[in-house]
Each structure stands twice: as structure tokens, then as C-alpha cells.
Design a protein around this nucleic acid. Structure first.
Length: 333
DNA sequence: CATCGATGTTGAG
DNA sequence: TCAACCTCGATGG
């Protein structure tokens, strides 16, 4: 569920709270026990995100790669220092942080101790993780039948002296070598927040205009561009007034460049605010409504059958590559 | 209470 | 193309 903006926010949280510290790594659930043992006690030296992938570097050339997939999420507990670049939800953005209206990616930076934040799939915070609650040591009874891996519990727990991060439900949570990390990076398309902007744009333009595949598919292809998911795809195509079925090579170059610039800006806003804000030019009242309800926040996403906000045409819904595609046949031609 | 579906990816066929 | 992965909020009875 989390698209690129969430993953960048998580990486910044790790950078702020874990980089430079020794980390106790465990797998309360058991399914990451081997990987946890490889990392336990090492110092984390770097956190970075590329698209929907997050990479945590540890001393000794070991990396933890995490992909949240459809419903993964991180819960932070204990002392949490909030990265200033993502803290604005409680400050400058003012009404975007209405209390109780959006727990989706709320960052609680008001309490130094036992504050808790959940970033990832939409999810309510679920109560505090007790810092004293260490993973229970298990004695070496050779004949013990180990219980099967538990579903619905913490796959990986990372703890410093003061901060705890719990991971649930990821698609990928694996320890990898630098070479393996490079291999993953190599097949990822450009991320506006990583690397050289000019180079990124040219890569994106070339990747799109080389293909006969529908632009609606290309935007979701992580080898073409990193971090865009089903929501941003639908919204970006609407904002560009572009028919999702247009083959990549038939999209005018300036429109392709426009898509890149739009993604750059939407991602920047998403990382800063923690919300997928894709509607602009709203009046004060419209804005308030958009912030208060997920259903009022998008141009087309999740609005099948409803009248287009711009032209009144019924928003269409179809399956594209087994994902739901929302678009306005009136505006997008 | 049970069932469904979701902001995603992989790998089998 | 489709099932599997794996979690939980929303929905319906």
C-alpha cells in the first residue's frame, strides 16, 4: 500500500534514530530469525530509500532490504526523534494535521518518551511497545517441537538503547550483500529523490517513449520509474489529462516530461506531509473536506461511478494488469 | 463473528 | 494470467 513517499519517510526515521547506533535485531515472530542473527549487535551506518524499497546498511557489509508490499508497516516506539524534513505535518502545514482525522501516517513528535508512530499501510496505532519486553531467550532443548511461525506478529524488531522499530507483514525483509543490493538497485527506475535530477528525467523519458505499452502500465512499472503506485498513477494521469491507454511512444515528449515533474513534486509533498495530496487549486472549504476524508482527497482514485470533479463524466473503472485503474473518460483523452 | 479487499511483487504455468 | 504471500480495517450479518 505504501507508495514511494511513505518509504522515504520511514528511511528518514531510521536515519534520524538508528544511524550510528548499535542495533539489537530480533524476530519475535520467528520468520526472520536467521537474518536477525546476522545483524544483531551491529552498528547501522546508513538508511536509504529508492522507490518502495528501503535499505539499511550495517557494519560489516551487511544490508537489510525491506519492501512493505501491500500491507506491511513499521511501528516506532520509545524515544523518537522526528526528522525535520518530515515533521511539518505538525507545524507549517497547519490544518493538514487535524487531530484524529488521519492516523494513516501520523507522526507523534509531541512526547519524547513512549511516543509511537506507524508508517506504512493504513493502520491505527495499537498501543505502546514496552521497551523492557525483550525477545525471550529460548533454552536449547534439542527435543523441543518448535511452534510454527506465527502470523500476525512482529517479523523484525530493531532496538537501540532508546528506540524500537517493529516490522509487520512485509513482502521482503532480507539480509543481503553489497552485490545483491546493487543488483536490486540496477533494476529500479529513477527516483526523483535519488541521484542526479537531469539524468533521472532523461532516463524516464527514454524508458517511456521507447515502449508501446500503455502509459497506465508504464507508470506502475518500477523499472521505468520508482515509487509510483496505484493511487499516484491514477491521479497523475488525470492531472496530465492523459488517457491511460496511450502507448508510451505516442505520449508527446513534453507530456512525458510533465509527468516526471509532476511526480517529482507530488513525491516531495508526500514525503513532507505524509499524505498523498494530489488535488491542488482547491478552495478553503474544498481543502478542508479533502483533508478530513480519504474519499474526498483524490480526483479519480476510488471514485468509480461518481461524477468527475472537473467535467461531471462518470469516473470509469477497469482492470489493467490485475490492478484497478480509475480514470475520467471525459477529461483524459 | 466471518468475509472482503487493499497504496504490491513474485513466480508458477 | 493468476495464485500466493500475509496483515488488518471495513463491511455485513
Amino acid at each position: 500500500m505504501p507508495e514511494g513517499h511513505s518509504v522515504h519517510r520511514i528511511a528518514r526515521q531510521f536515519d534520524r534514530n538508528f544511524t550510528g547506533r548499535s542495533v539489537a535485531v530480533s524476530s519475535p515472530q520467528g520468520r526472520f530469525a536467521d537474518g536477525a542473527a546476522l545483524l544483531d549487535g551491529r552498528r547501522m551506518s546508513r538508511a536509504m530509500a529508492v522507490g518502495k524499497q528501503m535499505f539499511l546498511e550495517f557494519d560489516g557489509d551487511r544490508w537489510l532490504r525491506v519492501h512493505l508490499g501491500l500491507y506491511g508497516a513499521w511501528d516506532f516506539a520509545g524515544e523518537i526523534l522526528v526528522d525535520p524534513t518530515i515533521a511539518s505535518a505538525n507545524g507549517r502545514m497547519g490544518q493538514t494535521n487535524q487531530r484524529g482525522t488521519d492516523l494513516e501516517e501520523a507522526i507523534h513528535d509531541d512526547a519524547g518518551e513512549n511516543s509511537l508512530a506507524s508508517i506504512g499501510a493504513p493502520r491505527k496505532t495499537r498501543g505502546h511497545v514496552r521497551m523492557s519486553e525483550q525477545t525471550k531467550g529460548v533454552d536449547d532443548g534439542a527435543e523441543l517441537e518448535w511452534p510454527p511461525p506465527v502470523v500476525g506478529q512482529v517479523r523484525a524488531r530493531l532496538m537501540t538503547e532508546v528506540t524500537c522499530a517493529d516490522l509487520r507483514g512485509p513482502t521482503a525483509c532480507v539480509v543481503e550483500t553489497p552485490e545483491q543490493i546493487d543488483a536490486v538497485l540496477d533494476r529500479l527506475g529513477p527516483d526523483p529523490l535519488v541521484g542526479d535530477p537531469r539524468e533521472n528525467e532523461e532516463r524516464f523519458v527514454a524508458a517511456v517513449r521507447r515502449r508501446g505499452v500503455a502509459i497506465g502500465q508504464l507508470l506502475m512499472d518500477q523499472a521505468v520509474v520508482s515509487g509510483i503506485g496505484n493511487v499516484y498513477r491514477a491521479e497523475m494521469l488525470f492531472r496530465a489529462a492523459l488517457d491511460p491507454h496511450t502507448p508510451g511512444r505516442r505520449v508527446p515528449e513534453d507530456v512525458v516530461r510533465g509527468l516526471w515533474h509532476d511526480w517529482t513534486e507530488l513525491l516531495r509533498i508526500g514525503v513532507e506531509t505524509g499524505q498523498m495530496m494530489t488535488m491542488d487549486g482547491l478552495t478553503g472549504e474544498e481543502w478542508r473536506r479533502a483533508m478530513a476524508s480519504r474519499d474526498d482527497r483524490h480526483w479519480v482514485y476510488h471514485r468509480a461511478g461518481l461524477p468527475c470533479r472537473r467535467c461531471g463524466t462518470e469516473i470509469a473503472l477497469e482492470e489493467m494488469q490485475a490492478r484497478k485503474l480509475y480514470w475520467c473518460p471525459g477529461c483524459q483523452k
